Computed example of a mutant assay.
Amino acid sequence: MHLNTESLLVILLVGVVAGWLAGQIVRGAGFGLIADMAIGIVGALIGSWLLPQLHIALGSGIVPATANATIGAIILLLIISVVRGGGRRNFWRR
């Protein structure tokens, strides 16, 4: 697979947006721009694997890709929070 500059910029943009959204949804999970981007990109990988396993199809395009990455990033942030000892409380913003 060959990525051109435009594809790479779209992937990074989706990663930044998804990481930021997940950080806003999950309490105390914002890690800064670079870490949020990495969490968003890893979240996109998690979401693109997990959602088809659950027979969930969001569609194609940038908005469904961002939603998919955000769902994966939220799952990743919840796992990070549990591993770091945050427990199950105080995940969601009120």
Score class of each variant (00 low, 15 high):
55 H>E: 15
25 I>F: 12
34 I>R: 09
13 L>M: 09
70 T>N: 02
89 R>C: 07
77 L>K: 10
61 G>N: 11
30 G>P: 14
82 V>K: 05
41 I>W: 07
1 M>N: 06
63 V>T: 15
77 L>T: 11
47 G>S: 02
33 L>F: 03
16 V>N: 08
41 I>A: 10
76 L>N: 08
56 I>D: 03
40 G>N: 02
49 W>A: 15
75 I>T: 08
48 S>H: 06
73 A>W: 05
41 I>C: 07
66 T>K: 00
94 R>Q: 12
51 L>S: 08
27 R>P: 15
9 L>V: 12
63 V>G: 11
45 L>A: 14
17 V>C: 09
44 A>K: 14
75 I>D: 01
86 G>D: 12
8 L>N: 02
80 I>W: 08
59 G>M: 07
66 T>Y: 01
93 R>H: 15
23 G>R: 01
4 N>A: 03
75 I>K: 09
79 I>D: 12
34 I>E: 01
49 W>N: 02
15 G>K: 04
3 L>Y: 10
28 G>C: 13
22 A>T: 07
46 I>T: 11
86 G>N: 03
16 V>I: 10
94 R>Y: 06
29 A>L: 12
53 Q>T: 15
87 G>R: 09
19 G>T: 05
67 A>D: 01
28 G>H: 09
52 P>W: 03
76 L>M: 06
17 V>Y: 03
74 I>A: 04
76 L>I: 13
75 I>N: 06
80 I>F: 11
62 I>K: 04
4 N>F: 05
23 G>I: 01
13 L>R: 09
46 I>A: 09
15 G>N: 01
51 L>Y: 02
8 L>K: 01
88 R>F: 13
2 H>Y: 08
90 N>V: 10
79 I>E: 06
80 I>K: 10
20 W>V: 06
83 V>M: 13
35 A>H: 13
45 L>V: 15
21 L>A: 04
83 V>G: 04
78 L>F: 14
13 L>A: 09
25 I>L: 05
87 G>P: 08
11 I>E: 10
67 A>R: 06
92 W>N: 01
67 A>G: 11
41 I>R: 00
7 S>A: 09
7 S>W: 08
62 I>C: 04
2 H>F: 14
6 E>V: 15
92 W>R: 09
82 V>R: 10
93 R>N: 06
7 S>L: 10
53 Q>I: 13
41 I>G: 00
33 L>M: 08
32 G>H: 14
53 Q>D: 14
31 F>I: 13
53 Q>M: 12
18 A>L: 00
24 Q>L: 07
10 V>F: 04
34 I>G: 07
21 L>K: 05
45 L>C: 13
31 F>G: 15
36 D>A: 00
60 S>Q: 04
77 L>C: 04
84 R>S: 07
74 I>P: 11
47 G>F: 06
28 G>Y: 10
91 F>K: 11
20 W>H: 05
85 G>P: 02
58 L>K: 00
10 V>I: 09
36 D>S: 00
8 L>C: 15
75 I>H: 05
84 R>E: 03
39 I>D: 00
53 Q>R: 13
16 V>Q: 01
61 G>F: 15
53 Q>K: 13
14 V>F: 00
43 G>N: 10
90 N>H: 15
90 N>D: 13
6 E>H: 07
91 F>W: 13
9 L>W: 07
52 P>A: 08
57 A>E: 15
46 I>F: 11
50 L>N: 00
